[in-house]
Design a protein around this nucleic acid. Structure first.
Lengths: 147, 147
DNA sequence: CTACATGCAAAGAATTTGCAAATCA
DNA sequence: TGATTTGCAAATTCTTTGCATGTAG
């Protein structure tokens, strides 16, 4: 997507694209859950969470809403090795990375212009074009490592 | 990129465990294919490739061999967004990253001590322990971008 | 009213697993 | 021989889709 990591771009005053489509009970519920729990969660977890809470939203709809928001750039997505995608409503809308807790999904947004520049340089040095990159750090957060 | 014998490296943590288990026709075939085609391929592609070539190996076995080698640290695995894991026999056995062509799977090994240090620092600054990271660069290689 | 949203169940895909038969050492 | 390996098919998981019905605007 982002072909030229341009860290020097001044934060554009265009935060969240206005939510598309109609406003429905389901979207509201999903959004509320995402806003409250600002940790990475899987679609299935989110679904369980909503159900537990009494909200009636089908799993398919959760997936649909999630991918719609992904398209709109309103949620960040992670693809860990274990085959379950993780979603999160991020504070920052600009390109950034994450330091994620494996246990609870809690995450810290990381911005690192130096890394952006580095990846761009590596790619161009090897003649690769349209470079994108993936940089995520996984660990155990202070709370979860406390015995 | 340069992964050559580094005499100055302090005793490297024994990465290449001797191939385990028995040697079989199937393992030989899979290994040969992996060694020849040193690009990232999915299990399914590898399976098709072997079949095409006349080698008789079942898909399940390809998966089993691949995950065994992964455990042994003999292949690197990538988890792109599109849900298919990609495997590759790497020249380097030490920790490194990749610059991968989206089209053909061709990859360049990248070593970047600075990035390693950076991720470790970020994690510890936030009190995260047992930090690991994912750093991959995707792009279009010179050959594939040629019209 | 009518295009978009949702629910449900079925479909898909990638990967794993149970188990009997084949095979390497 | 005897423990591994393999093949095959069935099972699992996460995710997507088809279609009839519901509903926001």
């Amino acid at each position: 997507m982002n072909a030229g990591p341009d860290a020097s771009t001044p934060s554009p005053p265009q935060p969240t694209r206005p939510a598309r489509g109609r406003s429905t009970r389901q979207k509201t519920a999903v959004n509320r859950a995402l806003d409250e729990r600002q940790d990475f969660v899987s679609a299935q977890e989110l679904f369980a969470l909503l159900k537990e809470r009494g909200e009636q939203v089908s799993l398919a709809t959760v997936y649909r809403i999630l991918q719609q928001q992904q398209r709109e750039g309103r949620v960040d997505v992670l693809n860990p090795d274990d085959g379950e995608a993780l979603y999160r409503r991020c504070a920052v809308q600009t390109h950034h990375h994450h330091l994620v807790c494996r246990q609870c999904g809690r995450a810290v947004d990381i911005e690192a212009p130096a890394v952006e520049r580095w990846t761009a340089r590596i790619a161009s040095e090897h003649g690769f074009t349209e470079a994108e990159h993936t940089v995520e750090i996984y660990g155990t957060c202070p709370d979860c490592s406390r015995p």
